[in-house]
Design a protein around this nucleic acid. Structure first.
Lengths: 236, 236
DNA sequence: GGTCGTAATTTTGTATACAATATGTATTCT
DNA sequence: AGAATACATATTGTATACAAAATTACGACC
């Protein structure tokens, strides 16, 4: 295995992306150049180039004289997310149905196999990554260079939001995941049939499901317990 | 005037952006590191960081072992442009009307003064830059981090497309420019009134006008001249 | 004359040394 | 003790030297 500097650089980028998406690196966490340098055996110059690249893609944020941090994920960005996602996802699915190549459809099916496998195994990380991969491929299918940058940013934060919100705790949540998986199948079918309308419709349904799943977590059912019986871990 | 390396670096980035937008650097042109280094008196390291940054924003494209080129502007990207622009512009204007701060509105008015001045002076470059600036401010007003990357890419190519297509040659074209200027005023008014619907409507009109202006160039009126009288500069 | 292969040159990518900035710590003074 | 300053350390930014790759130039061969 002769891996050149270029390969290690690519590996570093992949590792960082993966870590950001799975929250292995939390939003706001700051990255240690020295540490990463000897961990991946590259010098600071290429490392810093990777930082700038990932910053451009929205994974990281660079602060002058203060290095690189994982991009924030605040309540403000969450609101932005809910506003922009349905529009972009809808447009991308529509274009994907129109433009997908046979090869891309194969790739999408493969991604779906991985997604299903992750669901079965119950790995939240792999599920988030596989879902991310699935939707990235739909982005490639749409192939519109003006839509892709926004889509990719949405996908970054969608993965991170699912990592925090999608742990299936209730029956409903588990069902939602199964349904999401079925929707993926339907999406593949719509794209294969070049059915633009169906794809757009499915994008909307898929988004609504995702939104509901998040809502189940952000606004859970109120605790059904008489006052005074709630345990208080923090005083006063 | 003590300008630090950081300042020169910023100047370099501004110069490159400006050059790309105004077609001073043509699409596909490749950038000479050595030349830019001593022109802006920075070493290659920060120069290459600027390259990567601008590549992330869509101005440049980096090719492995082959340096940086100005991003292409092909017929494919033009088609993508026409598909994506109305959607993004509409969404941005709508959000801008909802979220603009008083300070941002002042900035927008200032940008419009510059735009009008460029129109009066007849400078295509300044017109393209001022228009770019105007719409960038609307992007800031919308303030949605997921929409901005796509908007900014659209704006880059909108500027470049106007540089090639918007030279007012006919009466109609000149009138279109005047109308575009009036639409800017109306946009400012709608945003100031927080009239979401009006802003979205204006975005559509403004886009249609822009689209028509481009069409006037891409599909000009057929030459009205008997066969055989057309001058032939290229033989056979 | 044209084509292929090889060497020289140029250009790009990486490592490291140095400079500048920020951070942490100790010491002094109130 | 607490605040403030000066100093030491660590981190980030830049310049330059070196390595690798691509481009060009040249000459041998067909």
């Amino acid at each position: 295995m002769n891996d050149s500097v270029g390969d290690r650089k690519a590996g570093l980028a992949a590792h960082l992306k993966r870590s950001v998406l799975t929250l292995a690196l939390e939003p706001g966490a700051d990255l240690d150049e020295a540490q990463l340098c000897n961990a991946f055996d590259v010098s600071r110059t290429p490392l810093r180039e990777v930082f700038r690249e990932l910053a451009g893609e929205g994974y990281l944020t660079l602060h002058l004289n203060r290095g690189a941090r994982v991009s924030d994920l605040s309540h403000t960005t969450l609101r932005d997310f809910f506003l922009a996602a349905p529009m972009i996802y809808g447009a991308v699915m529509r274009l994907a149905a129109l433009n997908a190549t046979a090869q891309q459809i194969e790739a999408l099916k493969l991604a779906q196999v991985e997604f299903r496998e992750a669901l079965r195994a119950g790995s939240i990380e792999n599920r988030a990554l596989a879902n991310n991969h699935f939707h990235q491929i739909t982005g490639e299918m749409a192939g519109n260079i003006y839509l892709l940058p926004s889509l990719n940013r949405l996908l970054i934060d969608h993965a991170r939001i699912s990592m925090t919100f999608y742990r299936p705790q209730t029956q409903q949540m588990a069902q939602n995941l199964t349904e999401a998986c079925q929707q993926h199948d339907a999406i593949i079918a719509a794209i294969e049939a070049q059915d633009e309308g169906a794809a757009a419709q499915l994008a909307e349904s898929h988004w609504n499901l995702s939104r509901n799943q998040i809502e189940l977590f952000v606004m859970p059912a109120a605790l059904d317990m008489p006052m005074g019986k709630l345990s208080r871990k923090t005083p006063a």
